[in-house]
Write a protein that binds this DNA or RNA. Structure first.
Length: 493
RNA sequence: GCCGCCUUAGCUCAGUUGGUUAGAGCGCCGGUUUGUGGAACCGGAGGUCCUUGGUUCGAGACCAAGAGGCGGUACCA
């Protein structure tokens, strides 16, 4: 007899960095996004949705090619040989949209958007290759008022998510300040110094993880980490390193004092003074609208790793209730941020188009909220109408429709199996109320209502199966006519 | 990309010096119970021991390469 070959079945599996998100996660995410939308809406922003794919050259200056086909972005060739890429954020597509529809849009154009973005990078804990971002941006406004507004929005989104003041902080800095400091340390504020400036930014971005010593090494010659990997440094002079490190600790809980400190540090640098002036303007608007230092602070140690920011930058950080040794709230970490990016839209057009925005990662924000035990209300499982007697299916569907008409989730059991199976199903679904109507009840125009939550509670006192079966805990008979109001009563109880 | 650790049932894991038919707990399915969830008891299904090659009379175990997973680090326009 020939060897029986096993059928070649595909293995049910999922690429790494791409997540399935079940009901409880999705519902929480929807609520979070809806809360953010409500804030964006209240400030007068309008929704926009753009596609997942864009032309590769629209997304950035790096074209996927034979040498570097897929670094960072997912890309494929369309049937006309043009490169398409999945968007890696929502900002670049916005820049494209504004540039494409420039003349038709009233400026400043202010929109909000959320959706999946894709990064072809190594995933890690809390890092995925597909994740949902939720953004608001303002395009065409050069004034610091637009930046101040984005900062207020960020703070209000924190509040709308259920956080109380003190559980979060928006930390604001300005790229122009660092440009000024570096200028004075011999790093020219031109393209020639761009690479060095980026290295400095990335070094500062690692302050909380590597500490001052590690960052000092990265600002200078370079640093070898524990696994033996070497990272080349920014090669600043000793005085440059000192100036940069001094800058990162120049902030004070008082915003006004921070500005005073910074004015001394930037000295004669024109760029630096511009930065100070912008912070002063932002401070004035925050003060006028009551955004105190408990919600928004100036913090020179945050820079954001991205290269495209040109002015004010900020991060939204969650603070756990636990205090550290110095009595300050412990940082859980950055869950979002934003800033001014004046060159992103002008890339497509000859003229300058200033822009500023705010963005947060939905799932990262959500898991941070969970760690902080911010209660996210749960959706009630549906009322379960058991298919006791298959001849009564139309009556069951009628009852379910009556409940739905009163905004009560209801489900008729459409699977197979006897009542035992149906009760097990209801139990597993977390159903609170089960409706039982067999021919006995139907003839009497009554309904048997069972409270499964209460029943489970009562079951703890019952050990023998006979007693369990005969007692039929937490069950009541109600009239068919009062069915909806009785269920409403039972659900509210 | 670089460094380290790991891979046996759906999950968590055991598996002796290399020796017959690879086990446990939990979970799942069925029954006791087709008008009732839990508990209890009884029964059942479920395995390419990650893959390929090598050593050996004999490999889940030893060796090599590869794949996948996890963690660190770098990159992230």
């Amino acid at each position: 007899m020939a060897k029986q070959k096993k059928p070649q079945r595909p293995k049910a599996r999922r690429p790494r960095g791409f997540e399935d998100r079940p009901a409880n996660i999705l519902r929480a995410e929807w609520r979070l996004v809806q809360s953010a939308y409500a804030v964006y809406d209240s400030y007068g922003f309008e929704p926009l949705q753009t596609p997942a794919f864009e032309f590769a050259d629209v997304l950035g200056k790096f074209l996927p090619d034979e040498d570097r086909p897929n670094t960072g972005v997912f890309a494929l060739r369309d049937d006309d040989e043009q490169w398409l890429s999945l968007r890696y954020d929502l900002t670049a597509p916005l820049a494209r949209y504004v540039a494409e529809n420039f003349d038709a849009l009233a400026k400043p154009f202010r929109r909000y958007q959320s959706g999946s973005v894709y990064r072809n990078e190594k995933p890690g804990p809390g890092r995925f290759r597909e994740f949902v971002q939720c953004d608001a941006d303002s395009v065409g406004a050069a004034s610091s008022a637009a930046d101040a507004e984005m900062i207020m929005i960020a703070a209000d989104v924190m509040k709308a998510a259920g956080l109380t003041d003190g559980q979060y902080a928006i930390r604001v800095n300005n790229r122009k300040l660092l440009d000024g400091i570096l200028e004075q340390s011999g790093v020219p504020n031109t393209d020639a110094g761009a690479e060095q400036r980026l290295k400095v930014l990335r070094a500062i971005d690692k302050l909380d993880r590597l500490g001052e010593d590690g960052v000092e090494a990265l600002l200078g010659e370079g640093r070898k980490d524990d696994s033996g990997d070497y990272t080349e440094g920014a090669k600043l002079s000793a005085s440059g390193i000192k100036a940069v490190l001094g800058f990162t600790v120049a902030s004070d809980p008082d915003r006004g004092k921070t500005i005073a400190n910074l004015e001394k540090l930037v000295g004669q640098s024109g760029r630096g003074n511009e930065g100070c002036q912008e912070l002063t303007d932002i401070d004035a608007l925050l003060n006028a609208t009551g955004f105190g230092p408990d919600r928004v602070g100036f913090d020179t140690s945050i820079v954001r790793g991205l290269g495209y920011y040109t002015g004010p930058v900020f991060e939204a950080e969650l603070l756990a209730d636990i205090k550290d040794k110095k009595g300050r709230p412990v940082r859980i970490g950055s869950i979002g941020g934003g800033g001014r990016y004046d060159d992103l839209v002008s890339r497509f057009r000859g003229q300058p188009v200033p822009a500023t925005g705010f963005s947060f990662g939905v799932s990262r924000f959500l898991s941070a909220l969970e760690r902080m035990d911010v209660m996210l209300s749960e959706t009630q499982a549906p009322v379960m109408i058991c298919a006791f007697d298959r001849n009564l299916m139309s009556e069951y569907f009628k009852m379910a429709a009556e409940l739905r008409a009163h905004d009560i989730r209801a489900e008729v059991f459409v699977g197979s199996g006897n009542i035992t199976k149906q009760m097990k199903y209801a139990d597993r679904r977390g159903v609170k109320l089960a409706v039982l109507m067999g021919s006995d009840e139907y003839d009497a125009q009554t309904v048997t209502l069972k409270d499964l939550v209460l029943g489970a509670e009562m079951a703890k006192a019952i050990s023998s199966n006979e007693e369990w079966k005969s007692s039929r805990p937490a069950q009541s008979t109600i009239s068919r006519i009062d069915f909806v109001s009785e269920i409403k009563k039972a659900l509210d109880a």
